[in-house]
């Protein structure tokens, strides 16, 4: 009996597999919730996108018809897609602008903490408030921006947000304000971690100005740049709030992006075409997947190099 008790194979199953099983037990609650609220709904969206459904009655199987309509010349979709591209490209301006402000603020002057927090302020206030403030700023006739362009003799017909050629850029500019602040704070923390000895050594070697920045500082800021890139891309793809507050997709739908179009089709007052909305969601999902795959690959590569 005594020899049996010390025999490792006679221990309980859990005891034998403790090291392998315990992490999974700790992960289990998170995995269950992630599956219920994220993974399963993704596949439900795929399923719904093959149907025509008003959210109330019976689903009607339509196969790929939603995708045929969506990708076969739906002009709202095309507008939304190109607006998304504009958002993605122009939103990246937040990174160099954030870097510039961070470099500017990274000095020891009296009261620098106050300046830093003032520059960070736009990120703290709600996106809805930023959108509202900018829409007043852009108002035709009375808006400050219209007055300022008036000094140069430029008159934008309908105001920035009322003109289909300028509205999207106007909203992106509003979005850049808080996003720049966000990138700035990332770079400020990154700058704290820059090795002063390397800077010293570079200075002895005669590096100055933009060469110092490009070859010595920036490589050390690479982790901050990566995170800034990730949050900016994500911010650009979920630009929903600004559009909803500032133009509501207008004028005549020229400022829609895919997420807003998806909301309009499926959940807005005149929407409830769940199948079509789900099809847009699926397309948006695959667009995001491209970026997600790149981020995952980049992180995996970094980890491997670090080992």
């Amino acid at each position: 009996m005594a020899s049996q008790a010390t025999d490792p194979d006679r221990r309980g199953w859990y005891r034998r597999n403790e090291i392998a099983v315990t992490p999974w037990l700790f992960l289990l609650p998170g995995l269950i919730f992630f599956a219920i609220y994220v993974i399963i709904p993704i596949f439900q969206s795929f399923w719904i996108s093959f149907h025509e459904w008003d959210g109330l009655g019976e689903k009607e199987w339509v196969g790929l018809a939603n995708y045929e309509r969506l990708l076969g010349g739906d002009r709202k979709f095309e507008t939304s897609f190109w607006n998304n591209v504009k958002w993605l490209l122009l939103y990246l301006l937040a990174i160099p602008m954030g870097l510039f402000i961070a470099l500017f603020l990274n000095q020891t002057v009296f009261g620098i903490r106050i300046y830093k927090s003032l520059f960070f302020f736009p990120f703290v206030i709600s996106q809805v408030v930023v959108g509202l403030v900018f829409s007043w700023f852009y108002l035709p006739n009375n808006g400050l921006f219209d007055v300022m362009t008036g000094w140069f003799g430029i008159d934008i017909r309908g105001g920035v947000l009322g003109n289909p050629d300028t509205a999207t850029y106007g909203i992106i500019a509003a979005g850049l304000w808080p996003q720049t602040a966000y990138c700035m704070i990332l770079y400020l923390t990154g700058l704290n971690a820059v090795d002063p000895e390397q800077v010293e050594a570079a200075r002895l070697d005669g590096a100055k100005g933009h060469k110092m920045l490009w070859y010595v500082i920036l490589p050390q800021l690479k982790p901050a740049t990566f995170i800034a890139f990730v949050v900016t891309i994500i911010g650009a793809l979920r630009s929903f709030d600004f559009i909803a507050v500032m133009t509501n997709g207008g004028p005549f739908g020229s400022t829609r992006v895919l997420s807003f179009y998806m909301f309009e089709e499926s959940l807005s007052e005149f929407g409830f075409r769940m199948g079509y909305g789900a099809a847009i969601a699926v397309v948006l999902f695959f667009l995001m997947l491209i970026f997600i795959c790149y981020f995952l690959y980049a992180m995996w590569r970094d980890e491997r190099e670090a080992r």
Partner: peptide
Amino acid sequence: PAEMASVGMEGLQE
């Protein structure tokens, strides 16, 4: 109907 109304009113605004 809802969808016609939303497409229609956008056209009227334009």
